[in-house]
Design a protein around this nucleic acid. Sequence first.
DNA 1: GTCTATATGCTGATAGAC
DNA 2: GTCTATCAGCATATAGAC
Lengths: 215, 215
Amino acid sequence: MARKTGSRAEITGPLIRQAALSLFARHGYGAVSMRRIAAEVGVQAGALYLYTRDKQSLLFELMRVHMEELLAAWAAEPKGETAPARLAAFARFHIRFHLERPEAVFLAYMELRSLAPENFARIEALRQQYEGELAQILAAGQQAGQFRIADLRLTTMSIIAMLTGVNTWYREGGRLSRDEVGEIYADMVARLVAPESGDARVYAGEHIGDHIAEK
Amino acid sequence: MARKTGSRAEITGPLIRQAALSLFARHGYGAVSMRRIAAEVGVQAGALYLYTRDKQSLLFELMRVHMEELLAAWAAEPKGETAPARLAAFARFHIRFHLERPEAVFLAYMELRSLAPENFARIEALRQQYEGELAQILAAGQQAGQFRIADLRLTTMSIIAMLTGVNTWYREGGRLSRDEVGEIYADMVARLVAPESGDARVYAGEHIGDHIAEK
DNA sequence: GTCTATATGCTGATAGAC
DNA sequence: GTCTATCAGCATATAGAC
């Protein structure tokens, strides 16, 4: 990886961003030095500043591009006609997109605290835009009587959290393929908002006693 | 906060752990110096080493104590007799316990990467023990015919993720109290495993067409 | 476009005074 | 129990040679 000098502008930029993404995700923004990023790419630390204004801009750009790719990919996704179909499409899409770039996902969730205030606000706006896409699907299904939703915002956050949570445990080559996981989650999300069940809380047995014995 | 000298062993130790917890959670383990922790407590950096072997031990102890408190608190929690009652109790407990200590929760989830391998393994074991508590409830309810669960592990991970996700958006003094959030989530979790619904996937409209128009 | 050299300051951890 | 002083090294960012 040791090089002396030369002009490779077209590839050095992407290499720097890739190295920074991987190092930030694995060790944390504050724990990674510009020297270490440069060493990973095979240039000297000073050369990094031809491609980024400073370390903070490097982090912000990684997160901004990730969020904008997420929004663009969802916009380009085939979604179906009905709200239930769109919800299933959202679940499959979210899992597929996030499993394809675990480091960017981890960074976008864990290093919000390392963003300067104005950068934080811009990333937050993009995240809320994405959450709004899911909220719209849920609201449409609720209005059409296809979903039963106790609280729109809490249901939105629940679904986002359970889908994104796949990234914390999924390992390539494990028991289930990505698509199989996507199908199971699409099913679980559908059940979370399904209208046909009665008051599920009755089954907690709190008000009607032990009508279902545990053993 | 400036002090000169003196013996305050009984309170300095807890103060150091509290300061380290807060700083690690807010800025990241790698971004926080021992000097900064010391300054927060009001002692010199050298004094920290009377209370911790090194920075890594400080992090590990914070995470270990958090996980052991979690397990002990759940063990002491009233749980109910039936699996549905236990599941609702788990949901309420998880949200209450986690909302009470957001910094420790954030640290335990985000700084696993900063643990030395042997420390990581010990924390992971504690986490799996906690997940096992939920998995046991789900398995019992499934065997008793009280739950319908497509995949035990994925359902376990979904529920943990959606419950823990509350910490990312809940703000004190907002629209809902902690208890109200706990109730709504207990309901959503119950619906996720409720047996009385048919095949929820049918409602995605994929095989039976547009039997429910969107508008 | 990349290098080397540099400025200024902070890093984790230890030794020894009090 | 806390302090001060210290070690050897790394931090971000810039300037100027090539």
